[in-house]
Every structure is written in structure tokens, then in C-alpha cells.
Amino acid sequence: MHFTEYDTRLAAYAVIVNDADEILLTWFNGGDGGRPSWSLPGGGVEYDEAVEDAVVREAYEETGYAVELGPLLAIHHHNAPAGGPFPRAYRSQRFLFHARVVGGQLGTTEVGGTTDFARWVPLAEFPLPERTAEIVGLAVRRLGRR
């Protein structure tokens, strides 16, 4: 399919693990028509925004933490056909970056968004009993755990 025949969404996420071997996750409330689930801090890249800047902004909005990016951990894409959740065929291109907390305090700062809260989750608890976005599983696998 030619790129003019589908819509594309760029998204970028932070993979943050603390010294206690816990990963920072966010609770996506399904507000944009999706299903509620655990996800990584991150989201859509604005039109005039660098991918790296989007990760830093989204992490702060969703977790209250200022973060510093490390290396790229993974690139992943997801496709959806036309007529499903979207009127046109759809491709989501996702970038996952290692990151570390450099300031702030835990607490969602966005108002009226799709993230209700953030929480540190022990990596030893994976897989989680609650619904979890596939990018969380990808991050955990790339980190070399489960």
C-alpha cells in the first residue's frame, strides 16, 4: 500500500527502570476509544516536535518526572485496516528509549488526558494480571527480563 493511502501516527515512549528493578508504567484509561491498560510513559509526537522531545514531554505529563533519554531500545510498528477503529488504514510507528528520572515527583500532570496515573511495577511481577499494552511486553523482553 502506498504511503498516501493510510494514516501514520508517530509515538515515542520512555522505558524507565529504577534501582529496585521496577519499571515505570502508566494507566491508559481508554479515553480515545481504546481499551484501558498499562502502558509506558509516552505518546504521540506533535507535528513540529522531535521524537526525543516528545518522549521527555510525554513522560513529564504522564508521570510528573523530568527524564533524560538514553539510547534507543526498540522500534516497533502496528497496523490496523481501514474500517476497524479508523476510517482509513492506519500505521503506528513507535520508538522506545531508555530513560532515567532526573527530577520531579510521581504524579500525572496532564488534565483531561488519557493517563490516569503512573506507578512503579516490579519487573518480577511480569506478566501482569491486568491488560498490558504490547509495547510494555516488548520493553520488558528487550531489557532481558521474561
Rank of each mutant, 00 (worst) to 15 (best):
H2C: 02
H2N: 12
H2V: 03
F3P: 15
F3E: 14
T4H: 12
E5M: 08
R9G: 01
A12Y: 00
A12M: 01
Y13P: 00
Y13Q: 00
A14G: 10
V15Y: 00
V15W: 00
V15M: 01
V15A: 01
V17C: 00
V17S: 00
V17R: 01
N18K: 05
N18L: 02
N18V: 06
D19T: 13
E22W: 03
E22I: 04
I23G: 00
L24V: 05
L25M: 08
T26A: 14
W27R: 07
F28A: 01
D32H: 13
D32R: 14
R35K: 14
P36Y: 11
P36N: 11
W38P: 03
S39G: 15
L40V: 10
L40P: 09
P41Y: 04
G42I: 01
G44T: 12
G44K: 13
V45T: 12
V45N: 01
V45A: 02
V45G: 01
E46V: 04
Y47K: 13
Y47M: 07
E49L: 06
V51M: 09
D53K: 14
V55K: 05
R57W: 04
E58A: 08
E58H: 07
A59V: 06
Y60I: 03
Y60S: 04
Y60T: 04
E61A: 13
E62C: 10
E62V: 10
E62G: 09
E62R: 08
T63M: 07
T63G: 06
T63W: 08
Y65L: 12
A66F: 07
A66R: 13
A66H: 12
V67E: 02
L69E: 04
L69K: 10
L73D: 00
I75G: 07
I75T: 15
H76S: 11
H77M: 05
N79F: 10
A80T: 07
A80R: 13
P81S: 07
A82T: 02
G83Q: 12
G83I: 09
G84P: 00
P85N: 11
P87H: 10
Y90T: 01
Q93L: 13
Q93S: 11
Q93C: 04
R94K: 13
R94T: 05
L96N: 06
L96I: 10
H98Q: 09
H98P: 01
A99R: 06
R100L: 06
V102Y: 11
G103W: 09
G103D: 15
G104M: 06
G104I: 03
L106D: 05
T108M: 09
E110K: 05
E110D: 11
G112H: 11
G113S: 03
T114M: 05
T115W: 04
F117S: 13
F117Y: 15
A118L: 08
W120R: 15
V121W: 02
L123W: 11
A124R: 15
E125P: 03
P127W: 12
L128R: 10
L128Y: 04
P129F: 03
P129Q: 08
R131L: 13
R131F: 05
R131V: 12
T132G: 05
T132E: 06
E134M: 07
I135W: 03
I135T: 15
G137S: 13
G137W: 12
V140K: 01
R141A: 13
R141H: 11
R142E: 15
G144H: 07
G144Q: 05
G144V: 05
R146L: 15
R146S: 14
R146V: 15
